[in-house]
Design a binder for these strands. Structure first.
Lengths: 135, 135
DNA sequence: CTATTATAGACTCACATTATCTCTAATAGG
DNA sequence: CCTATTAGAGATAATGTGAGTCTATAATAG
């Protein structure tokens, strides 16, 4: 039960794009330079974020990636689900009775967990990160 | 980001042991009969629950497994952590700065998630399951 | 003593993650 | 129009983990 490395790269890329949002497009090679990850691999991850509508890409010279229009609304949950997909944490009882009391209980906790992640906006984290120098 | 099948088997076994708690020891073959799982595989999972102190085993003829002394206190979290171990959902920022704002945010949500699972007692679920016939 | 039962270890298999490499398409700038 | 630059898509491989089987060992009741 853990998040993939791809999600880790996606989250840090989103945070970086948000902090340096005023600077226009950023190429994948620059974004990869901030993390220990190859450009081609990070590119595949960013494509998922593009398809989810969280960022916009422009091919060609001087192209790259930038945040979508209302980028202030993007949450940690948006990024995680864009990379990991929608399947729930606990989905093994489907073959059993859907009224399984264990499934109901875990999904209740899971719902709260996802909702909390849905309240955490990248823009707010970027604001905090500016005060604590690290990125 | 999901729970393993082993955890699924462990949770359903614990629920079954709790519902039929008065009947003394139950063999692994009987416990496996309630789920689509082999005895040897379920046995490995139950050994984890024994080492975590959630259940007690008795080898030999007429042996088997039964719940520990204060079995009423066992929660979903106890079972999950006994099988999955302790590593957190988001543990990739360790190589970076531990003050990473992303890690802090996700771990905060994770903490609440685990705490909620820690309030859900198997004994209570067993009580509910008795009213909704399924197990 | 024997049947029964848990425990431990070695082992296999399938699948998802994590990449890398290569080719293609699109675009800016001269 | 040409060229360098850049994103995107596909094939492929390596790696690790989960899932599961098989066999042998230890302990216990009767």
């Amino acid at each position: 039960m853990k998040l993939s490395k791809s999600t880790h790269y996606a989250l840090h890329t989103m945070l970086h794009l948000t902090i340096s949002h005023a600077e226009g497009h950023t190429s994948v090679s620059k974004l990869a330079g901030h993390q220990q990850v190859s450009t081609t691999y990070l590119s595949k991850i960013l494509t998922k974020l593009v398809k989810a509508g969280l960022i916009v890409s422009v091919p060609g010279a001087n192209g790259g990636y930038k945040l979508k229009a209302n980028w202030q609304e993007t949450t940690l949950l948006d990024v995680i689900q864009a990379v990991e997909g929608l399947p729930p944490i606990f989905d093994y009882c489907e073959d059993h009775n859907p009224s399984c009391i264990i499934q109901q209980s875990i999904q209740k906790a899971e719902k709260n967990f996802l909702e909390e992640l849905g309240t955490m906006k990248i823009a707010d984290l970027a604001e905090d990160a500016r005060n604590v120098p690290h990125h």
